[in-house]
Design a binder for these strands. Structure first.
Length: 326
DNA sequence: CCAGACGTTGTT
DNA sequence: GTCTGG
DNA sequence: CCAGACGTTGTT
DNA sequence: GTCTGG
């Protein structure tokens, strides 16, 4: 599932962080998406460690949706509300009564709510530093579930939760595939809103939750997902596959309350001590089996495996934005 | 033809 | 229990 | 996703 | 608005 995200960059910095190789002709140059602020009933984007449904956050879309003769390969950032308001909805924007913060990929193509937007090319990419996931538990109340912050592996030295260790130009933001819609009220005011596409989790995350967002893990996939004139809906769907290019750490339950916007929200906490009984059993079992360390599978896979860190090298994507400077 | 749904989650 | 707000 | 409300009256 | 169920 995906019910809370984190994005703390200013609009300008989000633009910098979303630099992509674009432009026409053979010589692709690095360009930044432009910031396109819509009225959205007066709702605006506020950088936050704790973004919840109904909040507004920036998403990438093709410029061609807005410019008459726009290049569908060009990207723009548009603040939109999380949770689609169906374009046919009558009344206040918040009275449709449907849960639309996520769209199950399995249901997309026979959904009355999402299919039209999708076939219409209204694809978007939700941008964030990471998202929060509550571990599915049988016994605990929802308020007692373990919470994790999930994000892209960063280059050496960058700690995503410590903004003093990185700059917008070098951070690797998490990008999720979504669908957006445009709603107009009786007065003719428009509201842009989006949903995050989800599917069944792969092994990397299924121990935590059975659903995960459709993460786009390369610049090419992002460009293809957004360019609705070049890539058909059918081909766009093929881009959505579970990724292993993610990592995570446990965070405090401060994030449970969406009013808590503290930067502590995405800070790692020490793993909760297991019950003494289980801990003792584990220790003696480890001694018997002569192991020094439990393997990933043996300890519930609750910490990310190594070897997911990207190599620090200058690729076409990164040329022009070097690593830590100064 | 009209009426009614249109969505997702977790948990008892 | 269920819906709305953040 | 979780938290918090869930209601009405008359009067400062 | 559009689709399904009756």
């Amino acid at each position: 599932m995906c019910g809370r995200t984190c994005l703390t960059l200013s609009p300008d910095d989000v633009c910098r962080a979303c630099q992509y190789s674009g432009g026409s002709g053979g010589a692709k140059k690095k360009v930044q998406p432009t910031w396109r602020s819509e009225y959205n009933l007066g709702k605006t984007y506020n950088p936050s460690y704790n973004i919840a449904p109904t909040d507004v956050s920036p998403v990438l879309v093709s410029e061609a949706h807005f410019e008459e003769e726009g290049d569908s390969g060009k990207q723009v950032l548009v603040p939109m509300m999380w949770g689609i308001v169906p374009f046919w909805h009558k009344g206040e924007h918040n009275t449709h009564g449907l849960t639309t913060n996520n769209c199950r990929l399995e249901n997309l193509m026979n959904s009355k709510l999402y299919k039209r937007s999708f076939m219409n090319g209204q694809r978007c990419v939700i941008v964030c530093e990471g998202f929060y996931e509550w571990k599915t538990t049988q016994k605990a109340k929802s308020s007692e579930r373990d919470v994790f912050f999930i994000y892209r592996p960063q280059v050496d030295g960058v700690k995503i939760e410590d903004k003093s260790t990185w700059k917008p130009e070098e951070v690797d933001l998490l990008k999720m595939a979504g669908i957006y819609d445009v709603w107009t009220n009786e007065s003719g005011d428009t509201l842009y809103s989006y949903t995050v596409i989800t599917f069944q989790s792969n092994k990397t995350l299924s121990w935590m939750h059975d659903r995960m967002p459709a993460i786009l893990d390369s610049q090419e996939k992002i460009a293809d997902w957004l360019d609705y004139k070049r890539i058909s809906p059918e081909d766009a769907l093929k881009l959505l596959k579970p990724t292993d290019s993610i990592t995570w750490h446990q965070v405090s339950r401060l994030v449970n309350n969406s009013r808590n916007k503290s930067e502590e929200c995405n800070n790692p906490i020490k793993r909760e001590t297991k019950s003494p009984i289980k801990s003792k059993m584990m220790q003696s079992w480890l001694q018997k089996s002569g192991k020094t360390k439990p393997t990933r599978d043996e300890e519930d896979a609750e910490s990310p495996v190594e070897a997911k860190k990207p190599k620090l090298e200058v690729t076409d994507e990164e040329a022009g934005s070097s690593g830590p400077s100064e």
